[in-house]
Design a protein around this nucleic acid. Sequence first.
DNA 1: GTCTATAGTGGGATAGAC
DNA 2: GTCTATCCCACTATAGAC
Lengths: 204, 204
Amino acid sequence: MSSAWDRTGPVATANRDLREIRESELATIEVPELTPRAKQIIDISLEILEEGGREAVSMRHVAARLGVRAPSLYKHLPDKQAIENGMIAIGLRSQGAACEAGRASSEDDPLWGVVHAFRRWALEHPHLYDLMMAAPLDPGPLVRSAELTAGRALREVMNGDAVAALTVWSFGHGLVTLELCDRLPPGSDVEALWRHGIESLRPD
Amino acid sequence: MSSAWDRTGPVATANRDLREIRESELATIEVPELTPRAKQIIDISLEILEEGGREAVSMRHVAARLGVRAPSLYKHLPDKQAIENGMIAIGLRSQGAACEAGRASSEDDPLWGVVHAFRRWALEHPHLYDLMMAAPLDPGPLVRSAELTAGRALREVMNGDAVAALTVWSFGHGLVTLELCDRLPPGSDVEALWRHGIESLRPD
DNA sequence: GTCTATAGTGGGATAGAC
DNA sequence: GTCTATCCCACTATAGAC
């Protein structure tokens, strides 16, 4: 069974740029430990989310798939928000790892490697992407450290240029959202949109 | 199902002038009339939405603000989806009108006029923007015609270039969404992000 | 066109027994 | 750690009286 808690390795930082700022914060965060049972509950919730979307995740459904009753969950997690935060943290780390892998596997064009991985991950996890992106993030250490991990590959590949990196992120987030919501005109050449956007925003 | 989609057919829009395609479809759509009472219900729902977000809009709340009971609403509208479609249609038309006004009031740089109006409208109507963009649109004529109206100014200002227009839309939608969800790093120069993105994506 | 009454379904969460 | 029982909440929607 694949561990949803995989992390990406450390990244070398060079100058005083966005990379260094984020890395230094990441180093100060202590992520609280979850019990094995709590992790299991979150993994099961994730399965239900990816199958049925956000509304499918209820304490009753999660408990049922675990073979217990809903009240039992409260012995392991304080409330439903804790489950959601756990799912979001896993999603952010998974997305970050995918982008990092895309960067590493595309040495000649690492930006495109990251972007392609970003898009693929979102299309493969539409409901998790929705959960991750639809609301402000919980400021707690669990989610916060995962958030910093998620953007690492893009920051790296944009050489820590904050404006350039956030601009590419905005474009990619917007386009993948339109794709997921089926909002592009029928017959649109989606690949051409990605190419045009990224080539226009690529740093010189 | 979708009579509006069927009129256009699966046309590849990528290499054609998006203006003509959309305008010709818009001309064929007959928007169904709503009774005055139905319009009033939708307007009240819109007030509640803008104040309290999507979850605040329930048949009970809408009815309460109208001074009636929830079951009475069903004499004027078939179900809750009809209310949501009405709100979405109003939102799309309002956004389109704002962008059109922005274009007209910025003769020297109409693209920037549209983009600025787009951003301002979204920041002023965050919950309505969320409702409009968070899910696939109902294919019926009411929403469909409003959708075509919404993108008119941007299509015009991009000279009907579908790829360029949709790329700018993706960027703008992504960035304004990140703004609304408070997902940009603290201290980000948001204006700089808009400038950098739009100037990079602006057609020559 | 509005009302009362209600069906039917779902949700999060707690208390206390075992 | 799990259970039963329960609370209280919310929601969409329908039937039928007035």
